[in-house]
């Protein structure tokens, strides 16, 4: 399966939120810790609803938490 082109800044945002743990984030968002790990590792693209809940957990707009990599960016990597 192709790796998701949805990128995220969750690791950075957790760091800026007093080192929020993946467990704490998963409880805030209402998903399992394994799902947070998969999203953070760009292995799983969350639904729009979960993406919004993650952004809301950090108090930032959706675009600060997630962005969609263009084909050019993907090819450069």
């Amino acid at each position: 399966m192709a790796k998701s082109r949805v990128r995220n800044n969750i690791r950075k945002l957790r760091f800026h939120c007093s080192e929020m743990t993946q467990q704490q984030l998963s409880e805030k968002v209402g998903v399992t810790r394994q799902t947070i790990i998969a999203i953070e590792g760009d292995k799983y693209s969350p639904s729009l609803e979960v993406a919004f809940r993650i952004a809301r957990a950090f108090g930032v707009p959706l675009e600060d938490a997630f962005h969609y990599e263009s084909e050019d960016q993907g090819a450069q990597e």
């Binding site: 209402g30 998903v31 399992t32 810790r33 394994q34 799902t35 998969a38 969350p46 639904s47 979960v50």
Partner: peptide, 8 residues
């Protein structure tokens, strides 16, 4: 025990 989420 964790309830099923969308990935599950």
């Amino acid at each position: 025990v964790e309830p099923k989420d969308e990935r599950d």
